[in-house]
Structure formats: C-alpha cells, structure tokens
Amino acid sequence: MNTKFANSIIAGLTLAGRNVRLQIQEHLLGYSWNIIIPVLYAICFIFVKQAILGRDQSDPEHWWSVLRAFSGITLFQFWFQLLRDISEFIRSNRGVLRGLNIGISPFILSLIFEGMFLLCIRFITILVAIPLVGISYPDNLISWLYIVLALLSMIVSAVAIGLLLAPWSVLYGDVRRALQSMALPIILISPIFYPAVTQSELVMYWVNMFNPIASPLAVINASFQGTPQIYLTAVVAWICVSIVIVAWSSFNIRKQIPILLERMGS
C-alpha cells in the first residue's frame, strides 16, 4: 500500500514536471502569465478606482484595496485554473490513460503539484507586491498560519469541485462553458474589488460562506490587515467537506474511467 502510494506520488511528480516543461516549451512567456495578468488587473483597478472615486493616494485604505484586488485576482485565477484543469484531467490525459495502466491518482496529484508550484509563484508575487504598495507584513505567526490554512482551503476546494465535474466534463461540453461563464460572477460576488462583509445577518455574509473562494480570500485579507477573522469557520468547513468530496470522487472516478474512455472514442 505504501509502495503504491509512493509510486503514485513519484508518478504525479513526473507528470507535473512534464506539464511544467510543456508549459514552458509551448508558451513564449511561460509562467510569467501568472504574474502579468493580475498585475494588469491591479493597474486597471487603480485607474478605474481613481477615475470613479477620485481617491487620494495617500489614503492607506486605498492601498489596502489595491492589495486586496491584486491578491484576490492572483489567487482567484490560481483557484479557477486548478478547478478547470482538474475538471478536464480525463479528457486532457486520455492518451496516457489509454496507453498506460497507472490509475488516476498520478494525474490528480500531478495537477495538485503543478497547482502548488503555481501557487508558490503567485503567492511570492503577492509578497513582493506588499512592500511595493507601502504595506508591512503581518508580524504575528497566527496570521501566517491562517494564510496557509486559507491557501490549503483553496487547493482542496478546487480539487473537490474539479473532481465532481470531471466525469461530466467528458460527456458534456456544457461543463466547460458553464465554468467559463461562472468566472466573472464569482469574481464579482467574492471579496476582491470590495471588502468582505462582516455582519453575519447580511445575505452577502452567507453568500461568502458558501462561496468556496470568498472565505479564503477574506481570511487572507484579514490576516494581512490584522482585522478580526469572520470567515475562519467557513474555511475549516470547506477544507473538511472538500476532503470528503475528494475521497468520494476519486473512488468513483476510478470505476468510471472505462465508461468515460469509451465515450471519448478513439
């Protein structure tokens, strides 16, 4: 059992390495896009905010909102990309799934490893941006632990939702379309361009509780700003629920792969 698990980890790392190499080979700017796009969003945000609200740049709240938008978009894109990659992993790996008998774990693990690599790039970018906007890093360990917990919640919720969608994405192209069309609404209802509500009696509070990306973003923002954590429970709940979904989906997909490979044709 342990050897099998170790082999899956190594196979996952191998596939992740292959994906990283392909990403670098097939794109001129490679992984730089993970930085370029959020930076462009942040620039647009600063410009639009100034044009609409005419805020004074010396207002510290202004730079907090810039950081929130920048880190929010950066992390949202990571989360959404991971969710989409996992939901399409059967289709995109059908050649190897047909060609080799190595099970599905390596493919899921490879995407998680690749996702973690991307997350590192994106999080380092956020860390670099913090002093650039004149904000200081959190000085207590617990805030950093909350950040790690929130990032973990993002990874497992993306994997869980992706795995739930993966078999259906093979059968119906609608899944991909639906995901694409959901991106903007999720950005708009998440605490990216505005702060997360703190009153639990408001509807938006419950929307954020059920939005898998809202609570981690709110926790990360609160950790950076040193404000009270309102959405920590939601983060923990999402981690627990997601782990159960991942275990259940992985078990199911293992049985479903032959059905899906058949429907994908040759």
Partner: peptide, 26 residues
C-alpha cells in the same frame, strides 16, 4: 500497444516522452 503513440506528448522529444513513460512505469 492499442493506439500507436498513445500518451506521447507531440511537442516533447521521443527521448523525453520515453523518459516520462519509464518514470511512470516506476
């Protein structure tokens, strides 16, 4: 060997593909 080049990434070299395959085979 049911599909001839099943699992080979077209943009990777034969050597890199074989290496990945070997690694996946443990």
């Amino acid at each position: 060997l049911i599909e001839m080049s099943a699992g080979f990434s077209p943009t990777m070299s034969g050597r890199a593909n074989v290496k990945v395959r070997g690694q996946l085979l443990g």
